[in-house]
């Protein structure tokens, strides 16, 4: 299982690009962190999600 934004998902074995393609995220408006490290956009296609990974997918919201 892979934890994505706090939710355990059965997506191990997919690349980040493959996972994102199954979602409604706008790739231009998100940033991805894997186990505490940034995954650059250019690496989405080659970064494999592995069992136990913790992924954060973030975007901008209003704030002070």
């Amino acid at each position: 299982m892979v934890k994505i934004n706090g939710e355990e998902l059965n997506v191990a074995g997919k690349t980040i690009a493959e996972y994102l393609a199954t979602t409604n995220y706008d790739p231009k408006r998100i940033a991805v962190e894997r186990n505490g490290d940034i995954v650059f956009k250019s690496q989405y296609g080659e970064t494999l999600l592995q069992d136990g990974d913790s992924i954060e997918i973030v975007s901008f919201v209003g704030g002070g």
């Binding site: 995220y25 408006r29 998100i30 940033a31 973030v58 975007s59 919201v61 704030g63």
Partner: peptide, 14 residues
């Protein structure tokens, strides 16, 4: 701006 977990439901971006 603030940074938060992205929401797949809202397509609008600030």
């Amino acid at each position: 701006l603030a940074v938060r977990r992205a929401n797949t439901k809202e397509q609008e971006s600030i």
